[in-house]
Design a protein around this nucleic acid. Sequence first.
DNA 1: GAGGCGTGGTA
DNA 2: TTACCAAGCCT
Length: 366
Amino acid sequence: MAIANVSWQHFREELLAWYRPERRPMPWKEETDPYRIWLSEIILQQTRVEQGWPYFERFVTAYPTVTVLAAAEDDAVMKLWEGLGYYSRARNLLKAARTVADEHGGKFPATYAGLLDLPGIGPYTAAAVASFAFGRQVAVLDGNVFRILARYAGDATPTTTEPGRKHFQQLAERALGEVPAARFNQAIMDFGALVCTPKQADCARCPVASGCQALAQDRVYDLPVKGKKTTVRPRYFHYLVVSDARDRYLLEQRPAGDIWQSLYQFPLVETDSVDTSLEQLIQHTDWPATLDPTRLRQLRRSGVYRHQLSHQTIGAVFHVLASHGLLAPAAPPDSPMVVPRDEFDRYALPRIITRFLEDTTLTLGF
DNA sequence: GAGGCGTGGTA
DNA sequence: TTACCAAGCCT
């Protein structure tokens, strides 16, 4: 539990004195347009600033307003999101934009509760947009804030449970007090990224070190306390890179209920081994019904591409096959589409496939 | 409430 | 190589 003698007034005053907005300049800082703030916050969910920044620039260029975004094609938005991960964010981004355009007259809700109702907006994002865009007096609670508050207060309450989350939300509101929430929220997240970092925290230059319980008790790296980590499941993907004489390839869209939902891929046979032979793949239930093995010639079998997700490890092998005669288009989504190589850039692909394509661009095509 | 959901950087 | 983790949300 929180220690009674923790001074939140000292904390907030020193934090704001430390903070200078130019310390980490970002295109969405000092911004008041709710659309841009919302867009940046969705992009930055579980994502480093450096990784999300170019995506933010691309999105505001392609879709300068929420109304323009609402009118976009699903596949175009997914393509722009390609490589950023957590693709449900892109799907919810479009859903929320359409809700704002269709049901709110193109204006974002100006309250925490109203924002929370939009798909893809949870407690953190609702607090961020409410404070940054609308000046609401609410404290954000993200990974930085958990870590900073737990350390400053010497608080070992687990952050991963619902009671723990509510406990730290209360601490955050107490820390915020009556100072301007937008500035406080920006400051505490910059502070977590630059000073009170997970590893190698810069306690020597910390403006609130004198009041930090974790530092006093030498428990900086014991806090915050988190729950048990998720187990990683191994999976083996065998992609069928089938092309015909016109350099057209089979592509299919991934279904709901699995990773990379609504992204595209080569026809996939999933097995329990990385060593599965082409003969075994042909016998597998995943083998595409419309693909006649007798009309295929094996050109190449790639090495193993390994891809680490937060909860799965993918080992992928690309089986490069040539079709005698032209591939026949059939009706998606039941059967794969036939797509010319130079039209791949219309479709969002998982990173493991773009990596393969980067390796083989010059050797494919014949 | 626990687990699913990406990708890249770092130690 | 492995493990952690980064401006979380949804089911």
